[in-house]
Design a binder for these strands. Structure first.
Lengths: 120, 120
DNA sequence: CTACACCACTCGATCGTCTATGGGAAGAGT
DNA sequence: ACTCTTCCCATAGACGATCGAGTGGTGTAG
């Protein structure tokens, strides 16, 4: 098929939102990487795809910045797994990123000419 | 000032949406770079900032891909300016990117636990 | 004992954005 | 005439997030 390339894989469009999504997922409780990815994929109705090559760097990034902490434990399937817990700073960051996300989404809606509903 | 860095400039969060915004702006009519940037900033109520270092590469990118065409003309202020026009392929691309944007925004809303209003 | 799902991690490449910098030309003010 | 500001286009280098592909290890089921 003399086709060009399909430029859009899901993740490429909204770079920068993965951290927020991970943080949000951890509000429910501690979780390890594999689970976090599955939860995001499922709750997004499989629209979002979380690649491992994006997930683990993100997790380490969040930990470096002090937004999550980690500890080793056993997964639901009795395997060794690194669990992540949201820190106080992480909660603040989540609030900040969420409000920024809403602001940006609304701004884009304005330009696109929709009534996207500010939703506050 | 012993300040670190402010990680979030607006554009960094939604990488990939600039093309869509530019395309959308051109639906109204041909325009040159400087104007396109102003229109996006204004209609977004100054939430979005369009840096020249992002705008011109984006414009050239869009032209390379055949989504816009360009021609030299005179601006409203009687200055030399390169105008851009949406092509038929550009319109199709805009439709595709818009629907993708809506899908992603909705998916993120689901994960974030909001009722962001699917809006169709 | 083999196959597979689960779990973590890493590397190279790519791509879009940013900051910074360059130039040129019109119009206003001095 | 000169300068200053605003408008307008453009590019270079650095940066950071993502992707694709690959490594390695371990319970569990057949």
């Amino acid at each position: 098929m003399a086709r060009g390339k399909q430029v859009d894989k899901s993740g490429e469009m909204l770079q920068g939102t993965l951290d927020m999504l991970v943080l949000r997922t951890l509000v429910t409780g501690d979780a390890h990487g594999h689970t976090i990815a599955k939860v995001i994929e499922r709750t997004s109705e499989d629209v979002l795809e979380v690649e491992q090559g994006s997930l683990y760097p993100a997790l380490h990034r969040l930990e470096d910045r002090g937004w999550v902490s980690s500890y080793w434990g056993a997964s639901e399937n009795n395997r060794k797994a690194k669990f992540y817990r949201l820190t106080a700073a992480g909660r603040k960051q989540l609030v900040a990123e969420t409000s920024r996300w809403r602001q940006m989404a609304r701004a884009i809606g304005l330009v696109m000419g929709e009534d996207m509903l500010s939703g506050q």
